[in-house]
Write a protein that binds this DNA or RNA. Structure first.
Lengths: 219, 219
DNA sequence: CCGCATCCGGGGCGATACTG
DNA sequence: CAGTATCGCCCCGGATGCGG
């Protein structure tokens, strides 16, 4: 049995996105935009290759992703979110906010850490809090990789190759980046703990961070 | 392997609520409040009894539910959402809204239909759109069962035993109830299709319904 | 009857190997 | 690089049993 067989909006939504890895695939495509198979596999440590292929097929059948056949420079196919898939942003935002308390313990030794996750975290929790006409670029570097979150009043974009300069760049352990962006740490506190903040830190304090909810369950 | 082993807020959230049935258990507890084991089993058609017991145990260990030992009249234990569990309301709301397009096809022959799902649908999508001081009670009857959704500006409650009168009562197929509440159907259109609207229909048109997103994938 | 625990069959899932 | 193929395990679903 795959479907819940319940005429309920939650159950029907979970019939589509409730399977393992599906929402994380959407997370990667939302963060990095059109991606190749290998890019997705890199962004989803732990997924089996057959499962990724399976999920992409069913997600395509469900109208969440599209597979296109090369934009020109590269000869390989790329996967993109459809409009329906991009609507999952609200679901991912809700999950992201709810997950904040579970991040306080920091990564365990066998946890993967990737900077685009922190960038998407910033993008999802901070989007919509910027004044009209503003545009904030946050650089995030954890573990050698560098990505940029470009935030505006009505949307965001996460990119690896930035044109222009970032307003502020954060370098250090992911837990400090997340703690700072979620409002659990102040800029000075994060700096004392080892975070490097280059550029204009004031653009961070201007943003309304994710409100921490309740202390959270067992870490 | 249970956890994703990714230091990402979405992945960590799904480590807790990503398992099958967990979010639907939260849905039932959010809709009906403190419930007994049998009540939950009734509200979750298709779940195996051992799975429900397993899920309740892990959800208790994760700090999502609490098991109390009888309020007085009944001698059996009841399950309640903790504050942390109630915070899942935002996740359920996002899933509910995203699932709206999947509801247009109506229930398939082997789909279960329960009125508290429609009531929670109304509560989740309409809450927060009421003016200060307002209080709207919507009765929903599908398949013989009747529940009430009590909506206020800052919260909601779904109850079986209502004290007082409902502002408006909807009787008929669940698809018409959902269509009306989600804004896909007007009151007159729903009536023509067979929905009975008793009381003051104007309280419905005053509410801002869930905005339908994109047409949605395969039904 | 309520609230589970136990047993069992099937399939989803995870890891590895292999191929165009 | 982009998947396909294969295998073993464990989760899940369905049925039954059992103590209070």
């Amino acid at each position: 049995m795959k479907t819940y067989h319940q005429y309920c909006s939650v159950a029907r939504a979970l019939d589509v996105v409730g399977d393992r890895w599906v929402l994380l695939i959407a997370r990667e495509l939302l963060a990095l935009g059109p991606s190749r198979y290998t890019d997705l596999k890199r962004g989803l440590p732990g997924i089996a290759s057959n499962l990724l292929a399976d999920r992409l097929r069913t997600m395509e059948a469900d109208g969440l992703v599209e597979r296109r056949d090369a934009p020109a420079p590269i000869g390989t196919g790329v996967y993109t979110l459809t409009a329906r898939g991009r609507d999952l942003e609200d679901v991912l935002r809700a999950l992201t906010r709810w997950g904040v308390p579970t991040m306080q313990s920091g990564p365990s030794p066998d946890d993967a850490v990737q900077p685009q996750w922190s960038a998407l975290f910033a993008a999802l929790t901070l989007t919509g809090t910027l004044p009209e006409g503003a545009r904030t670029v946050i650089g995030i570097e954890t573990g050698g990789d560098l990505v940029h979150a470009v935030l505006g009043p009505h949307g965001f974009e996460v990119t690896r190759d930035l044109v222009g300069d970032a307003d502020v760049t954060l370098r250090g352990p992911a837990v400090l980046v997340g703690g700072l962006l979620s409002g659990l740490l102040s800029v000075t506190a994060a700096r004392k703990l080892g975070l490097t903040v280059a550029g204009r830190p004031d653009v961070l304090t201007d943003l309304v961070p994710a409100v921490p909810t309740h202390p959270g369950g067992t870490p």
